[in-house]
């Protein structure tokens, strides 16, 4: 895997996301998260931070926004197809895919962290932990969860002609993420909710273990993506 090929992959992804309309869309998503948090706070101040983070932000906005971010970096194609414009000149698809996936990971992670930060800020209530601490923990949880989603969505994008497998990952997470069943251990949403103070996906599972599972999901997702990508 050559560093220049990896760099080409990163640049390919970066060119797809560094556009004014993409930045505007990201701002709109973060703004929407802020609006939901403010509405929640307006509705009932008691526990508004927890409700906003566990409900709107990590229950719906983060999974959808990260799905969009991965789709954007991959150009709404499968991982192999996204690498083809450069792979056709004789570059191996794998380093290119690694570059693209790394770009997707960074984008999704930053977006999820921004959503979490904004939500924690706008929905902060007097019963929540001190604002600084709440913002810090929400942000790193957002970044970790965003990366896990990006890893799994990238893996999903190795299935189907247009990478439609990532839609299946989204549905799985949406259905099982808050179900309380044993399958929820494979859903990033379940671990995100646990880290935010919700029920653990498995009885007796610590929050540290959930963080580790999210990190493992990220690494495994990227590794499986590369393994499934042809040369």
């Amino acid at each position: 895997m050559t560093s220049s090929s990896l760099l080409f992959g990163l640049q390919l992804g970066q060119r797809r996301i560094t556009r004014a309309r993409v930045l505007l869309a990201a701002l709109a998503i973060v703004g929407f998260a802020a609006a939901v948090a403010l509405a929640e706070r307006q509705l009932d101040l008691l526990g508004s931070a927890s409700r906003s983070l566990q409900g709107g932000a990590f229950g719906f906005i983060v999974p959808l926004a990260t799905l969009g971010a991965v789709g954007l970096v991959l150009g709404n194609e499968s991982v192999a197809a996204a690498t083809t414009p450069l792979a056709r000149f004789g570059i191996s698809r794998r380093p290119l895919a690694f570059g693209l996936t790394a770009g997707a990971l960074a984008t999704a992670s930053a977006l999820a962290a921004a959503i979490a930060f904004t939500t924690a800020l706008c929905a902060h209530d007097p019963w929540a932990p001190p604002l600084g601490q709440d913002l810090l923990s929400s942000t790193w949880i957002g970044a970790l969860v965003g990366a896990a989603y990006a890893g799994l969505y990238s893996f999903g994008a190795t299935f189907g002609r247009r990478g439609g497998g990532r839609g299946f990952v989204f549905l799985f997470d949406f259905v099982f993420g808050a179900s309380g069943s044993a399958l929820s251990v494979f859903a990033p949403r379940a671990h995100a909710l646990h880290l935010l103070g919700g029920e653990p996906p498995l009885d007796g599972m610590s929050q540290g273990a959930s963080a580790v599972v999210l990190a493992v999901m990220t690494v495994a997702g990227v590794a499986a993506t590369l393994a499934r990508c042809p040369r």
């Binding site: 390919l12 060119r15 797809r16 414009p85 450069l86 056709r88 000149f89 570059i91 698809r93």
Partner: peptide, 19 residues
């Protein structure tokens, strides 16, 4: 990849990567 490096292709709608 080493084989693709020795194959030149043009398509009807061009497909150039945005680099």
């Amino acid at each position: 990849p080493s084989l693709r490096a020795r194959i030149g292709v043009t398509l009807a709608p061009p497909s150039l990567p945005d680099v």
